[in-house]
Structures are given as C-alpha cells and as structure tokens.
C-alpha cells in the first residue's frame, strides 16, 4: 500500500509540486508565494537566513502546518485539500527533525520498527529484519538495544533517519537535521544522507551546510523573507549568484 503513488501521478511529473504557497501566522506572513518542483530522485536544498520560512515550508509539505493558500501536490496527493488523507500522505513522505525526536521509552530497534508494525501492519519478523538492515545501513549495527538517551546526537539522528526510511517513503524531508549536532558528528549524518541521495531517494533538505548543498544537491533554492530569491544548480548559485541578497548571504556563510 505504502509507496505506491496514486494513479494520477506518473513518474515523468515532479513528485513534489509546490505552487504559490502562502502561509500566515496571525497577521505575520511567513511564506509569500513559494513555487518549486522536485523530480523523483532529485536532491533539493533550501538555504537562507534564519526566519526566512524554510522550516515552515518543509512542514507544509507533510501537512504538519496547514497552508493559508496555494497548492502542494506530493505524488498525486493534494496536500492543501481539506479532505486530505493525512495518513496516506505521511506514508509517502518521511521526515527527519532537527531535534531527532526519537521515542525515548523505546530502543533504537523498536523506534525503527514501530511505524511499519502499527501503521502499516506488517509482519513483525520481516519488519525486524528490515529494521536491523536499516540500522546497519546507517552504521549503527550493535546499537539496536540502546535507548535514545544512551546514544550521541549523531547516532540518534541516524536512528531517526532509519526510522523514517522503514516506512519506505517516496520523498524524504530533512529539517535542519545537523543544526543541533556537534561539529564532529555532523559529518556522519551527512554521509548517511549522501548515500541515500546516491541510491536515488528523493530528498528535500533545509540546511545550513553549504558544502553539503554544493556537493550533493541537484538544485538549490535560496529563500529570504518568505520568497524564493534565486535558484539554480549549485555550481551556478554558489559561484555566480545574480541577486545581491543571495551574494550577501553566501559571503557570510561560506
């Protein structure tokens, strides 16, 4: 059931299509008409200064935050539709958070197994085999029985990635997943994401890791104050930014 896109979606269309999305919190407009596409297998990075609405945008895509206006289509599912089946959407879209948000009362293995078992109702033995394989893939073999509190930030974040992957999503969203990590553990998480990208997973990242964006992304969007200021392939955006705001931001962070 999960992972099979509805019939309205074909693989030649973008798997994520965001069109003219506005989002206001009270009178404050955070997103002022954002549009972009992500094609299957693409790695897209969203960069920009703090408070530019990046996290809000990525949260709109799996309906954690409802949009004020505009449309978002993920693998044929209309996210802004009032009759949206949130559970169907979230079986298609995986999300990893800045603060890992593992379930503290469950072991690493149980964290990875929970959703496939209880949401998808899959067979326990199969799920366990897959969960162990996923933990090995994120280089955490041997940590299956550790509780989140016993793991480092980087390890917890890799469990969170494995947990999300266990649902076999079509798209993975990463919301500043390295922002809370020690510098030395950032790399291990980025290596994991890079491997995912190389395997063809569609990834949408909000990130402050410019080097990562430059090396891994297919397309980079620079947002500021709720709008996309400029976008393009990383080679172009990072070396030949057209907009003054982009250039100023890049000069500060690079």
């Amino acid at each position: 059931m999960a992972g099979i896109p509805p019939s309205t979606w074909t693989s030649d269309q973008p798997i994520v299509r965001v069109s003219d999305v506005h989002k206001s919190f009270g009178t404050f407009e955070v997103l002022k008409g954002i549009s972009f596409d992500v094609r299957k297998g693409e790695v897209v990075c969203i960069i920009g200064p703090s408070g530019s609405g990046k996290s809000t945008l990525i949260r709109c895509i799996n309906a954690l935050v409802p949009v004020t206006s505009g449309t978002i289509r993920v693998a044929g599912i209309e996210v802004a539709d009032p009759k949206l089946d949130k559970l169907a959407l979230r079986r298609t879209v995986g999300m990893v958070f800045q603060q890992y948000n593992l379930f503290p009362h469950k072991t690493a293995l149980a964290n990875v197994m929970m959703a496939p078992l209880h949401v998808l109702g899959q067979n326990r033995a199969e799920v366990e085999v897959r969960a162990r394989a996923l933990l090995a893939k994120v280089r955490l073999a041997g940590k299956e029985d550790a509780y989140p509190g016993e793991l480092s930030g980087g390890q917890q974040q890799r469990v969170a990635i494995a947990r999300s992957l266990a649902m076999r999503p079509d798209v993975m969203l990463f919301d500043e997943v390295t922002a809370a990590l020690d510098p030395e553990t950032v790399k291990e998480v980025l290596v994991t994401i890079r491997e995912l990208a190389e395997e063809g997973m569609t990834c949408l990242l909000v990130t402050h890791e410019m080097n990562f964006a430059r090396e891994v992304a297919d397309h980079v969007y620079f947002t500021d104050r709720g709008v996309i200021v400029e976008h393009g392939p990383p080679a172009t955006l990072f070396s030949a930014a057209q907009d003054e705001r982009t250039r100023r931001f890049l000069s500060q962070v690079l």
């Binding site: 559970l87 958070f97 379930f103 999300s164």
Partner: peptide, 13 residues
C-alpha cells in the same frame, strides 16, 4: 509537542 510531530510524520493516528 515534538514527540507528537514525529509520530504524526510517521502516519500514526
């Protein structure tokens, strides 16, 4: 609330 968000993202009811 982040626990709720994480669980919601995994399609739990």
């Amino acid at each position: 609330t982040t626990q709720w968000e994480a669980a919601e993202s995994l399609a739990f009811t």
